[in-house]
């Protein structure tokens, strides 16, 4: 007969401790599972820290786009139609006066005073397309030019093709700078500009558009004296031939000359002819419609 043994007090304590240990063991094992689960979850967490993608690559500049070009061309075409109409009207009025516009680029120079004296002698006025830095160097002669009633106009800052035609904004930026210099010296705000070497072929449609947005009137010429090439009295003879041509076709002459020694030396000869022919020398003003060479799809950006 098997007799069931009963636990004494010590036995009970021992069993309790054993049970406690068992519970701890289970807890430990469970805890171990938790650790395992945590490790497992690392994979899930790992995905949450993916690197973010973002492309900083710039989008194509608007200025270079087809849309931009078409906007500019459409606007320029519209303006050109109205410019031609206005210019024709202006020319008709000028023809009644037998007007002539003498224009001198690249000044002021050390010879400008002499040039002003000669114009005075012939009782004539002209328009001066002046460079910003040279105006700063010779403010007195700029003031004299103004007080003598000549036209004050802008020819930019650098006279460098690589600078002034470098972007759609570059011509305007140079003209704005020149405009501020002229205004600081004379108080006159001029919108009359001429680009170095004329508008064709470097002044693109975009550049024209921006100039126009800045309310600049861009002037070229219809009589090139060639004084920049023929550095003696040959330029006078050439100009006289050109004046005869403009008279024949009914165009009011806008004569390109330069504020430089060689030109000034033979200028009296030219002015004598002009006076004798009965021309009335006038100055360009802000409100006039400019003569600008058209692009006709041929203008090109440098570089």
């Amino acid at each position: 007969m098997h007799r069931r043994r009963r636990l004494n007090t010590r036995g009970k304590i021992a069993v309790s401790i054993l049970l406690f240990i068992l519970i701890l063991l289970i807890t430990w094992l469970f805890g171990g599972d938790k650790k395992g689960a945590a490790k497992e979850s690392e994979n899930i967490i790992g995905n949450s820290l993916d690197m973010l993608s973002f492309s900083s690559e710039p989008v194509e500049a608007f200025a270079d786009s087809t849309l931009s070009q078409s906007i500019v061309e459409k606007e320029n075409e519209k303006k050109e139609v109205s410019r031609q109409k206005e210019y024709k009207k202006q020319n008709q009025l000028d023809q009644l006066d037998k007007a002539i516009y003498l224009t001198f680029d690249d000044g002021p120079s050390r010879d400008t005073n002499q040039l002003l004296d000669i114009l005075d002698d012939y009782d004539m006025t002209a328009t001066f397309f002046m460079m910003g830095p040279k105006m700063k160097e010779n403010p007195t002669v700029v003031k004299r030019t103004y007080h003598k009633g000549h036209g004050l106009a802008l020819h930019g800052i650098t006279h460098e093709v690589s600078n002034i035609y470098s972007s759609p904004y570059a011509p305007s930026e140079e003209m704005v700078e020149g405009q501020e210099i002229l205004e600081s010296i004379t108080g006159v705000k001029s919108n009359i500009v001429r680009l170095p070497y004329g508008t064709f072929p470097y002044l693109t449609e975009s550049m024209r558009y921006v100039l126009s947005q800045n309310e600049f009137n861009t002037w070229d010429w219809n009589v090139d004296s060639m004084d920049w090439d023929l550095k003696d009295d040959r330029y006078v003879q050439h100009t006289i031939q050109e004046l005869k041509r403009t008279e024949e076709v009914g165009e009011t002459p806008i004569v390109l000359l330069h504020d430089k020694k060689e030109t000034i030396e033979y200028l009296p000869e030219l002015l004598s002819y002009i006076k004798k022919q009965g021309y009335k020398a006038k100055v360009l003003t802000n409100d006039m419609t400019p003569l600008t060479f058209p692009c006709a799809g041929q203008c090109r950006q440098i570089n």
């Binding site: 973010l52 608007f62 759609p168």
Partner: peptide, 24 residues
């Protein structure tokens, strides 16, 4: 269609995009 305003706007967009790229 102010060409210069539109052009500037896109330059600003590109500048903004560059800044965001640096933040990211």
């Amino acid at each position: 269609y102010r060409f210069d305003s539109l052009d500037k706007q896109i330059k600003d967009v590109n500048e903004s995009s560059k800044e965001i790229g640096e933040v990211i």
